[in-house]
């Protein structure tokens, strides 16, 4: 006997589609987020306990590696007279200024080189060569040219931020799907409008990779600048701690740099998630 089982094509298609509202229970999703973030604290907490035990047990001298409890006291002391906040503020403003300038120039140069074969042939190799120069090699030259005030520090940080942003955008533009560009052309888009409506949104994921790398390098270049010529900032606190033999001050400065680096990267990651929520990317199992 032949059995005919009917299935309506519309219903079949609707079943296959993922409705936009079908995202699962939100409350359990939030709980999972909190739990995932909480898991990230386990390793640091265990390390802190081991660290405290090792120093208190006399296995490592406390003047070279002060225990976490001593660091808490140092933080309190530095916060009480406003010194720590002052250094953190100065360093943050330097990174903000240098990163903004470097990233803006990186976007401009990346757009020109990415979109124009002539510009790429003309200035691409030069940028690649400049990119290979180690950060510290710039410092003596910048001090000679620009003195020891704020300008050389901001310029050094801008140099650090420039290249990853530039390279990220160039790579993003080179990887834009030809078919999407053709679609834009079908709709009569040319020049600046084609760049704004097709190239830049399509290159945004790569640009964000460049921005986040650039921000992390901006913090690295900040320390290089402040270690050499500064009277304020976390780099100066590092240098001062070394000269006065205060390992606790050095470690607090390192932790403050880690905190600021993490906070600024989290801000950029938040912006990335918001602006790139359209991306269809693989999510790690259990994330």
């Amino acid at each position: 006997m032949t059995e005919v089982v009917s299935s309506h094509p519309v219903a079949a298609e609707q079943r296959r589609a993922r409705a936009p509202s079908d995202t699962g229970p939100r409350a359990s999703g939030r709980l999972a987020d909190v739990a995932a973030r909480g898991r990230g604290l386990i390793v640091p907490a265990v390390l802190l306990v081991i660290w405290e035990a090792v120093v208190r047990g006399g296995l490592v001298p406390a003047n070279l590696l002060p225990p976490p409890s001593a660091l808490v006291a140092t933080v309190r002391e530095l916060l009480a007279d406003g010194e720590l906040q002052g250094h953190m503020l100065v360093s943050s403003l330097r990174v903000l200024a240098g990163f903004s300038i470097g990233a803006a120039l990186g976007v401009a140069a990346g757009a020109v080189v990415g979109l124009s074969a002539k510009a790429e042939a003309l200035i691409g190799p030069t940028f690649q060569g400049l990119r290979a120069i180690p950060s510290l090699a710039w410092v003596p030259l910048l001090l000679l040219w620009l003195g020891i005030d704020e300008t050389p520090k901001i310029v050094l940080i801008a140099i650090g931020a420039f290249f990853p942003v530039y390279a990220g955008l160039v790579s993003g533009i080179h990887n834009v799907d030809r078919k999407l560009v053709e679609l834009g052309q079908v709709y009569g888009l040319k020049g600046g409008v084609l760049i704004r409506r097709i190239f830049l949104p399509a290159a945004l994921p790569s640009l964000f990779v460049g921005l986040r790398t650039g921000l992390s390098l901006a913090w690295m270049f900040l320390v290089a600048a402040e270690l050499i010529a500064a009277t304020k900032g976390l780099g100066y606190l590092l240098s001062d701690g070394r000269e006065t033999g205060r390992a606790d001050e050095v470690i607090v400065a390192i932790l403050a740099l880690a905190l600021l680096g993490k906070l600024s990267d989290s801000g950029l990651a938040w912006l990335e998630r918001r602006l790139l929520r359209w991306r269809d990317v693989y999510k790690t199992i259990g994330a």
Binding site: E13, A17, R18, A19, P20, W278
Partner: peptide, 18 residues
Amino acid sequence: VGLADHANAYPKQLSGGQ
């Protein structure tokens, strides 16, 4: 075309037919 309920969805949320 039967997509009135999907106006604000992103393409990644659509099936091939949609």
